[in-house]
């Protein structure tokens, strides 16, 4: 336990030193931060944007992070700060997409059948096998695509990722009250979409 805490402290110190060097002009050392956090950023972005756009968005996250390093105060750990940039870059992606008015997909008979099967699952095993099917992911994507970018961002963080309202507020750079209100509205909107009322 004590060893773990010492290792964490040593890593944090090492990271602070690395950040100091990068800010001091040793630009190439930023590559070390990319390889350190690439997987984490990929995981955040991969769950939020279409697979074909993941690499491009991850790239944008790191470029934004580099040019925003001057704003990193060190009040929160670097990985939290970077996660916030990743979440906001994905949010911007959906805002731009809404402006472009990309047509929303519709549900097919396969999807409707999946919903009926998922609702009718009698055992845990049956339910687990249903949620692993590709239709599940597509129905989720369909429902999320009908939400506003704000509702989508909050719903993903709070209801799907399971972050607290405070954490979600930090990641989005919004107030706790805004996130609380949005989270409630987003869930209400999702329920309406799933019931076919929106």
């Amino acid at each position: 336990m004590a060893d773990e805490s010492l290792t964490k402290r040593a890593q944090a110190g090492d990271e602070q030193d690395l950040l100091r060097r990068i800010r001091g002009g040793d630009r190439d050392r930023f590559a070390e931060l990319i390889s350190r956090y690439e997987d984490r950023v990929l995981r955040i972005v991969g769950r939020r944007v279409p697979a074909a756009r993941v690499e491009e968005i991850v790239h944008d996250v790191f470029v934004r992070a580099y040019f925003g390093l001057a704003q990193f105060s060190g009040d929160v750990p670097f990985d939290h700060w970077l996660a916030g940039i990743a979440v906001r870059t994905c949010y911007d992606f959906w805002r731009d997409r809404t402006r472009e008015e990309v047509p929303v997909s519709t549900l097919t008979d396969d999807h409707h059948r999946w919903i009926e099967q998922a609702l009718g699952a009698q055992s845990d095993d049956e339910w687990r096998s249903q949620v692993s099917r590709w239709e599940a992911k597509e129905v989720l994507e369909w429902a999320l695509s009908r939400l506003s970018p704000e509702n989508r961002a909050v719903l993903t963080l709070v209801h799907l990722d399971g972050h607290s309202v405070r954490e979600a507020a930090q990641l989005l750079g919004w107030t706790v009250v805004t996130v609380k209100v949005r989270a409630h509205r987003a869930r209400h909107a999702l329920r309406k979409i799933l019931s076919g009322n929106l």
Partner: peptide, 22 residues
């Protein structure tokens, strides 16, 4: 249905990092 969709979201495989991102 919400629970099934949440579970489907959490079961998504992590994307594989592309070569040469850094």
């Amino acid at each position: 249905l919400e629970r099934a969709l949440t579970e489907a979201y959490r079961r998504q495989p992590d994307p594989v990092p592309g070569a040469g991102l850094a």
